[in-house]
Design a protein around this nucleic acid. Sequence first.
DNA 1: GCAATTTGACCCTG
DNA 2: CAGGGTCAAATTGC
Length: 351
Amino acid sequence: MEKNSTIISWEKKTFIISELTSAKEHLKQLDMHLGPSAITNGKLLITKILSSVENSLFMLSGIKPEGRSDQPQMTPITLTPIAQSPPRSVTGSPHSDYDSDLTADYSKKRKTLTRWTEKVRVCDQMGLEGPPDDGYSWRKYGQKNILNANYPRGYYRCTHRNVQGCLAMKQVQRLDEDPSTFNITYRGRHTCIQASHLLPGQQHKKHDQKQNKSKEAIANFQTSCHVKAENFGTTQQVILRTSSFSFPSSSTAIPCMENESNNNIFCSWTPDNHFMGSLFSSPFFSPTASESNNLSTYGHTLQTSEYDVSELISAASLNMCSPFQELDFDMAMEPIQSGSKYPTDSSSFFD
DNA sequence: GCAATTTGACCCTG
DNA sequence: CAGGGTCAAATTGC
């Protein structure tokens, strides 16, 4: 089997380590706040999340998890490009799939980009004019009537495609059986820096207005998403459940525990609508969280039962709601196999 | 005036 | 060859 080496820049690695370290600290604080009398499930959840974070840190930086006798087995995640049917270069040169994405960009050859699908239901008060904003700015480049479909399929690509070479695209298809539901197929990762990621003073005025519109949309947005990562090789499905979003412009949604089957994990929307996987940096884990924030839930319930919480975190946060999505590497899940092993030399893992 | 959207034609894939 | 995906000129909107 081919072993793909994944390259990650020093800055990104540092960023990830920083984020995970922060997450670890917040989790510890939460653990302390809960105290020993906390609900067992909650404590277990924290333990597992903490374990995942520590393991990730260990993989990235070599920082060993602190000795924990109850530490669950680390989830085996392989970091491999997950482009569909990866094209073999004609010349046989060892391009990464990311390179392939780039070189294929301006040809008319159909791209084989990372691909996953979400089903998004739009509530009535939003109207049915279109799918909810996902935080990124898209430009529509085509619309097509699809055979046996009542509604046309819209084709979108990242607004920053030309400027920043971002190859992210999405297709939006309204479902025949449920017109209030959109099937959104995302292709490729965002490699751009969205304007909303910049400091307020750096943001373009027009874009500002658009972002505000997005906030309104997101604030009224109720969704039930089925996220299916098509490249996982196995059919893993994640259900996203939300209550209505309603938070002030400067706030971050607070994920709240929905203690259903103990298999929920949480992601958050950043103030500028970016669905961040940095679940740990949300106010939920911060002692400084403003109480004025309204609660919102992004509970992910994995339908398959083989994965425990740490796997859930890995699958969901790394692959769909994560800032990692914007990084120059893919993470693919492999079916969990007991006995599969991690490289022990994590320092060379990304090199 | 510029940026986004629409739409018909063209291209690619199965 | 049919259907889906992309391009790019024309149109629309801010």
